[in-house]
């Protein structure tokens, strides 16, 4: 195995030996990106600018059939999630059911206070819980927390963590992502700076709306293999740091 690798890389090195004199240094090629400007822009963003970004997010989202819901408080966010649950049709499951990321922000939502969905089964994606896969398959709605969102492209950044698996935002027919307004970034470059600061991320995904395809005669259809519908619930007023979870806006 090692010999194969060595031979392969040797062949590649031989192929480019003519550029040894002219190419930039290895250290220059791998020079770390200076994120200070982007991180400052994010950290020092005032409420007015945040509102502008929110507006952009909502506009861009509508182009992608990403439904945005602005909820000032956690109470209203919980209410919103209940409404979505009640009004969404099921697709692969007989009955509605929720699967939620085990995230402090979701735990803090007063879902128990939503009488209308009292009988709707819900399951949390607790770390090392062997039931999660089956419960995910049986769920009609997956609920996650967006680590960040990007206004320019109506994108959410979703990191995979223990207790916050990938399939929650992928397998159920409907995906609801909850976002704290303070976690809204302007553009992809800013988001990448935050991802870089996060350092040890295993796998992560950028999600910009529900799944879609235009493979048949270029007619756009939403609902290919990922969720058919996606909702972004934006909690616009500040919350307790403990609820914000891993990525704190600072």
């Amino acid at each position: 195995m090692d010999d194969k690798r060595t031979a392969f890389l040797d062949r590649v090195r031989m192929a480019v030996q003519d550029s040894e004199e002219t190419r930039i240094a290895w250290s220059e090629l791998l020079a770390p990106c200076d994120d200070s400007a982007r991180l400052n822009a994010f950290a020092q963003r005032g409420p007015d600018e945040q509102q502008i970004l929110l507006q952009t997010l909502v506009e861009q989202a509508s182009l992608l059939h990403l439904q945005t819901h602005l909820c000032p408080t956690l109470d209203q966010a919980a209410q919103c999630i209940a409404e979505i649950t009640l009004t969404s049709a099921t697709e692969f499951t007989a009955e509605p059911a929720l699967i939620l990321h085990d995230h402090p922000l979701l735990r803090a939502l007063p879902l128990h206070a939503q009488a209308a969905i009292n009988h709707t089964p819900r399951h949390w994606t607790g770390n090392r819980d062997p039931e999660v896969r089956n419960r995910t398959l049986a769920a009609s709605i997956g609920v996650t927390v967006a680590d960040w969102a990007i206004a320019e492209s109506a994108t959410i950044v979703q990191m995979t963590r223990p207790g916050q698996p990938r399939s929650t935002s992928l397998v159920p027919s409907i995906h609801i992502a909850v976002l704290l307004l303070s976690h809204l970034t302007a553009n992809l470059a800013e988001a990448y700076a935050l991802v870089r600061r996060e350092q040890n991320c295993d796998s992560w995904t950028l999600i910009s709306g529900p799944s879609k395809t235009a493979d048949i005669e270029a007619v756009m259809v939403h609902g290919a293999h990922g969720p058919k519908a996606m909702h972004l619930v934006v909690v616009t007023e500040p919350v307790n740091d403990a609820h914000a979870g891993f990525a704190v806006a600072s």
Binding site: V132, T136, P162, P165, D202, S203, T205, S208, G209, S211
Partner: peptide, 16 residues
Amino acid sequence: TYVSFVGGPRRKGDPD
């Protein structure tokens, strides 16, 4: 719509 970044298998205990 989706851009996913992966580099290794699941962590022990991940359901997917």
